[in-house]
């Protein structure tokens, strides 16, 4: 029987994943906090059925992406709009995020992609293998390769324009 202590221990080590997924999908700090809470709850719900406790990152990515996309449906969809203040202007005092300019530009460019391409690029940037990405998103391995290349080209275009 997996204990709550071991769950919290694992969560504590991998919580960065939830933060990063949230950052790609939610502009608003309160929405990100909400999403963080919901993801932790969904992880807790499916934790007893987790087989690979040694390397739970793929499972956390899957749950975090699924939760964020479900949350997006419930809340207002985060469409990238240039007329809205970006996260940099928001000054996340509570998260104490101190991101440098390069990271900000990259985040801004990724947020301009559609929801699925954001997940694809996130997993690519997190150095997940094509096989792992295909399992998390439910695509074929060959399609993952094609889609990542396409998303990267779009990202580069966005980076030039940002």
């Amino acid at each position: 029987m997996k204990s709550r202590r071991s769950f919290l221990n694992m969560l504590s080590a991998y919580q960065g994943i939830i933060h990063k997924v949230g950052l790609l999908y939610f502009r608003d700090l309160a929405e990100r906090e909400d999403n963080f809470q919901e993801t932790v709850f969904q992880l807790w719900r499916s934790y007893p059925r987790l087989k690979n406790t040694e390397n739970p990152s793929s499972w956390i990515y899957a749950v975090a992406i699924n939760t964020s996309i479900t949350q997006l449906k419930r809340k207002s969809r985060m469409e990238y709009r240039k007329d809205l203040p970006d996260i940099q202007d928001e000054k996340d005092v509570f998260e104490q995020i101190a991101r440098n300019e390069e990271t900000e530009i990259l985040l801004k460019a990724i947020r301009q992609l559609n929801e699925i391409d954001r997940s694809l690029l996130l997993l690519f940037l997190e150095e997940k293998s094509y096989k792992e990405i295909s399992v998390i998103l439910g695509m074929s391995v060959s399609n993952v390769g094609v889609r990542i290349n396409r998303a990267k080209s779009e990202l580069k275009k966005n980076l030039k324009n940002t």
């Binding site: 809470q37 807790w44 995020i97 440098n100």
Partner: peptide, 30 residues
Amino acid sequence: NNELQNTWNQLDKSFVSKSEVELDHLLNKK
């Protein structure tokens, strides 16, 4: 690719991690 990944990895340093007690409290609240 490398540059992209390096820039992305800098994000890890920008989060203030929650302690186990805080996570436990958050889970209870939820």
